[in-house]
Each structure stands twice: as structure tokens, then as C-alpha cells.
Write a protein that binds this DNA or RNA. Structure first.
Lengths: 209, 209, 209, 209
DNA sequence: GATGAATGAGTATTCATTCAT
DNA sequence: AATGAATGAATACTCATTCAT
């Protein structure tokens, strides 16, 4: 009993003809295609036509949803950034300052990376334009690390032997690199080894012995 | 477009065709212009005409010395890489395995960065194409760090608590980031603070407490 | 109760297909937007989207009322042309051939310009496509001027010293230019000076001394 | 006895291979193609590819010689303008203020139009972009006419009955229109009739009876 | 070796127009 | 009638690379 058919009138309960004209859905498809292609080939390795084609729409449609290629990247990066910060903040908040903060942070970071490989490659990968935004995340992270460290030094909780700025850059570089390295091939290390190692390094670098 | 080069042709005993002083100088000027422009604007921000113009030669001359833009970058990166490895190896060798190795290494790295800011920006900066080569340096570095660490663990000189691969990536990311951050504006930290901090972090991360 | 403007055709009791108040209003809004935007930016400086947006309707609605952008222009130009001719004819008719014809004509022209600056800019301004229509008005004007002059020459009322075709083009060029120049900034000359000067020039050029 | 001679290779006395790589010649060909195509179809009716093709060069070559399409037009217009002014100035100068000035001026204008039909169509034709430059010529002309008239009125040589600004616009509009009309088809009037009519109109409009 | 004019494929972007809803 | 998302042809402009001189 063929169910097909249906033109002008009686629609089955299920909407079989996926509404082709759904702006939000199209935009989402473009974002998805952008995430994937940017992760694979970088901003310059991808044309707006590529993205449109991957999303299954015509070339012009791209510009109905984004001013230009850079804007698509900006949106992706901004969304990604927000998502990541949210995760990290939540992890840190839960541990509210206890020593548990570091393992939670590591765990949140690694889990984010595992779930959003493409986003990590875009953000922390090596594409100038893209990582200009990634850089902002890292800079933000570095700044907050540096500030918290300065506060602790002032409070006498920590020796002043390490320059807070240098240290924070170091941590941030370390995290980004490890995570970017890992997402290229998650078999390179187990989730646990990764979390454990990141945690130990941070503790050894940032806490007084 | 013939890509092949002389293949089975017997090469004369005499080494490469005696490079005209002029030709060598032109090539050198192109390399210098490339170093500067790539550092400033990245591979995609620079045209072959730009480089030729900066070197004071005609557009076509560029292709007399380099197959294409990518080759110029490759040559620059290779030279840079060799230079950096040489410095680092020398520093490590001098300290031959003593605990002095780490400070020497840090010092060599920082001094290299101070002398070759453009090269560091090209190698460790965030330009996809360019740092594909920079990545190779870092990968090489990471590999040798990982190997040496594995050897020490095997020899019982070090606990197996940290995954050698993760750790080596971490170190390499940390060094690259700190150095790249610093060359953007060397007033961000004094040479000494930089060396000291890098040294301490590496020691804390890599040595048993 | 519409006071339809009778022509010669007997209209059925029921007016044209009862134009929905809405449709007619939409069309009118599009015409108004078109007049304004074409006057400001020329045919090429305006998109069909611009016009629709200015009229407060969706892009597709434009094509419900006009076959394409050119048609909108054509309609505007035609209406404008008809309006202008009507005014000029009326002025000339009232003076029925008396010497008063010229001042009346000038006055009618200047007053039309004052009331319909946008239309004058579209018609006599310098936009290729648009003024192809304006050109038609002027050509028509020139033709009738040339004809009337030829008649007078034949009737011996005027010397044959001036080529009627050249003269009519001259008059038409003169009028269009002066009017277009004036509407750009009506403070450039008072209405009276304008009318007076135009009148004198026409008289001196077209009447025997 | 050919003196030529030359490089390493014996060149025939005549240079048969017309040097294909002559920048000046290419630029000239592009200008010529531009003049013709702009005159025929206006700025918007012509693509840079069209012009390049008409000049017998590749699309990219266009941009080797002109920044963009608008620049080509600007150059053409500027050259044309200069040429026209030169002719008109010369004609006026020769007659140095005598009543002969007007006929000389008319003659120069008509002869210029006869020789450079394309240029006249570009300058005085109805293409917005193009005639923005043409407009400048006319404005300049109008200004100088207005000034000279004002001087004469001040000197009591002429009645103040006609507004100098309106009058100058009128003259300029008249001349441009007549000339543009004529070049479309020079059979519309003989050179002499044209000159004669233009002269008489100007005299009647600008001189006291 | 060097020159620099020429090439032409590549790409981003616009916009008139259509059509399913 | 109206909507507005989608289309895709059109086009300006760039730039790596070639090659005759």
C-alpha cells in the first residue's frame, strides 16, 4: 500500500516532505558544513560554493544567511567559544576553588574536545583567520589564570618565583596543543591518561609543592 | 608543463653550477623579503609580486629562484628549523645530560627567538600553511622528548605516572606558545624571567619530585 | 464614489475588475518608492529589493505588480510624460497661438518641475536607461516644435534662416538642462527669473526680430 | 646600409614580428575599445571582459593597465575633455573677443563632434557615470559663460534682463543636445547649417539687439 | 640571469527573478 | 495577494605562473 502521493490536500500525520523552505534549517546546514569543511581545510581551503554545495543549496543562498565567508567562521567560532567557556566555567564552579578544580577543568576540556572534534580543530588548529578567534579564547583563559595566580601570590599562598604572565601563556599553549594533538587521532591516548596527565602538569606548574 | 628535471642525465663532476654572485644575492634578497613579509602577513597575505618587489626584482625573477611560493616558504622554514635545532642540540650537548640541560635549552630557545623574531612568528605563529612546517619542528621535538622520557622510565629513573606522548606534546605546545607570545612584544617579560620560568616549568613537569 | 476620468471609451457600469483596495495601494506604494529611489540613485543604483523594502512589501510582491524593474521605470516615465504633456498642452492651448504661448509654456514647465522634482530628475537627469524615456518626451517635443516652425516658415511668417530641426533640438536641450539644473537646488534661481529667462530665450530664438 | 644591429641574434632590417609585448600599445588598444564600446552601450552595458576581448587581450590584462572599469572611463573622459577644451579655447583665442568668437566657437565644436563621434556620445550622451565627467565639462563651460556675461552686464555692455546663470545653463544644454543629436546621424543636418544655426542662436541669446 | 607584459583559471559576491507556501 | 527563501547566471577583480625578449 503505497503511502506516497499527496499534493495539495490531505497531509499524513507525519510531514514527509521535509520543508525545503526553512531558513533556520538552511542556516544550520550551512553552519554544519562550515564546521566540517573549515576543520578539514581551513578558511582559505574552502570556497563559499563548497560550503553551499555541502549544505545542498545554491551558491547565492549562502549570502542570504551570512554576509561573507568570514562571518560564517566568526559565528562558528563565537558559538564554539561560548560553549567551551560554559563547560569550563561549570566545571570550575562546581569545584568552587577546591583542589578539585584542576581535575574537573581537565575533564571538562577533554570531554569537550571529544564531543566537538571539528570545533577544536577550528579553534586551536593552525589556521590564521580561524584561530584569531581561538586565540581570543586562549587569551581570555590566560588572563584569568594570570590574575588568579597574581592574587594568590599577593596573598602569600604561592611563591613569586614564576612570572604569572609567562606561566599563564605556558598553560594555555600546553592545553591547546595537547587537545589539538589528541583530536587528530583520539587513539593517541586514552581519555583517562589525558585527563590525568593534564591535571598533574597543571598542579605541578601552578601549585606550591 | 614539464615538471621533470633531469633525471638520468649524468651530472658533471663539478658541484652545482657555480652560482653567479649575483644570482646568489638575488636569491638571498628574495629569502629575506619572504621572511619579513610572511612574518608580517602570513602566506596568504603576500603575493609573489610583493616579495619580488620587496626584493627589488621583477615578478618573473621570483620563479627563476623558486618553483613557487610554497617552495620559498619551505626553504625558509627548513633553514629556520635547521638553525633552531642546531642551537638547541648544541645547548643540550654542552650540558650532556646533566640537570643543566634544561636551563641551557631554555636559554638557547629564548635567545634564538630574540634574534629571529620573524622566523619564530612564521614557524610558531598561526598561519596554517606556514606552521605546517613549524609543526614538523615541534613534532620532531616532541618525539625526541617522548623518547628520552620513555628511556628514563624504562631505566627506572622516572615514575611512569605521566604519559610520555601527552607530556611531550604539552611541553612543545607550552614552549611554542610562550615564545610566540613573547616575540610579539619582548617587553612582555625580561629574557631572564622567561628563561627562568620556562626552566622551572619544564623541570617540574619532567622530573621526579 | 470614484470619479473615473472618462476617455472616449464607454466604460461598463462596473469599473475595471474591482481592484482590491489593497492591490492598488501596494502598486501605488511601489510606484512611489520607485520614483524616489530612481531619482536618488538611478536605475542601476537601485535593486528590486530596495524598492520593495521601501514600499514595505516583500521582494516577491514587486513582481506581482510589474513584470520587471524596467517596467516599473517605464510606467513611471509614461505617467510622468503624460502629466507633463498635459500641462504643456494646456498652457499652449489656453494661449492658443498668441504670443502668450511662450510665457505660458515656460510657466507650465517650471511649475511642473517645482512640483515634481523627482520626476524631472528621472526624466531629464543623466541616467541612460531612465532618460531613454525622457529622451522620447524631448524628441516628441522637438518634433512638434520643428513642425510648427516649418509651417510658419512655409506661411512666410518666419525667415528660413534657422534649420528647424537644429533649432528644435536646441530648444529642447536648453529647456531640459535648465530645468534639471534648477531642480537640483531650487535656490539657484527664483521661479520668476527662471520663467522670464526661458521665455526671452525662446522668443529670441524662435521669433523674427 | 642598415645601421640597426644588435643583440646576439641577427635581426632582419624590418622588424616583422610586431612586438606583441608593448604595454603602451596594449593600453592604447584598450582605450580605443573602451571608447567604442562605451559609446555604443554605456558603462553598464559593457564588461571588462568585453573590452579586453575587443582589444584582443586576455581578461586579466585589462587590470594591468587600469585599476578598474571606472578608471578606464575616467581616463577616456579626461582625455576627451582636455581635447575639447583645447579646441574651443583655441577657437576663442584666435577670435580674441571679436564678434567672430561665436562662429569660431560653433565651428570648433561641430568639427570636434564630427571627428570624435564616439567621444561626444560618451561625454554628452545619457549615461550617468560617463556623463558625470561630461557634466563637469559643461559645468565649466557654463561657469565661464556666466562669468563673462556678468562682467559685460557690469560694464553696461549688456542688459541685465537675463539671469546669467540660467542663461549659461541654457546655452550649455543647447549645445550639448544639438551636438549629441547630430552625431547620432550626421545626415540630420549639414555641417554648415549646424554651425550657422548654433551661431545665430547664441548671438540672439547672448548679445543685445 | 633578468624582465615585465600577458595569461586565464579561480572566487567572492550581487541581484533579478521564481515559486512553494 | 503576499511572502520570502531559494536560485544561479553574471561579473569584477586577483594572482600564481609563463615566456618572448
Amino acid at each position: 500500500m503505497p503511502v506516497s502521493q499527496a499534493r495539495s490536500r490531505p497531509e499524513p500525520a507525519t510531514q514527509p516532505p521535509p520543508p525545503r523552505r526553512d531558513a533556520a534549517r538552511t542556516r544550520e546546514r550551512l553552519l554544519a558544513s562550515g564546521r566540517q569543511l573549515f576543520a578539514e581545510r581551513g578558511l582559505h581551503g574552502v570556497t563559499s560554493h563548497d560550503i553551499a554545495a555541502a549544505a545542498g543549496v545554491a551558491a547565492g543562498t549562502f549570502y542570504l544567511h551570512f554576509r561573507d565567508k568570514a562571518e560564517l567562521l566568526r559565528v562558528i567560532a563565537t558559538q564554539t567559544t561560548a560553549l567551551l567557556r560554559e563547560r569550563l566555567d561549570a566545571a570550575t564552579r562546581e569545584a568552587h576553588g577546591s583542589r578539585q578544580g584542576v581535575p574537573s577543568f581537565s575533564e571538562a576540556l577533554v570531554d569537550f574536545a571529544a564531543e566537538h572534534r571539528d570545533l577544536v580543530r577550528i579553534l586551536f588548529g593552525r589556521d590564521s583567520e580561524a584561530s584569531r578567534v581561538g586565540a581570543a579564547v586562549l587569551d581570555g583563559l590566560a588572563t584569568s589564570i594570570a590574575e588568579s595566580r597574581r592574587a594568590r601570590i599577593a596573598a602569600g599562598e604561592m611563591p613569586a618565583s614564576l612570572d604569572p604572565d609567562v606561566l599563564s601563556q605556558a598553560l594555555v599553549g600546553l592545553l591547546a596543543r595537547v587537545v589539538a594533538w589528541w583530536v587528530e587521532d583520539p587513539r593517541r591516548a586514552s581519555r583517562e591518561a589525558l585527563i590525568d596527565t593534564l591535571t598533574r602538569i597543571q598542579l605541578s606548574g601552578t601549585h606550591p609543592t
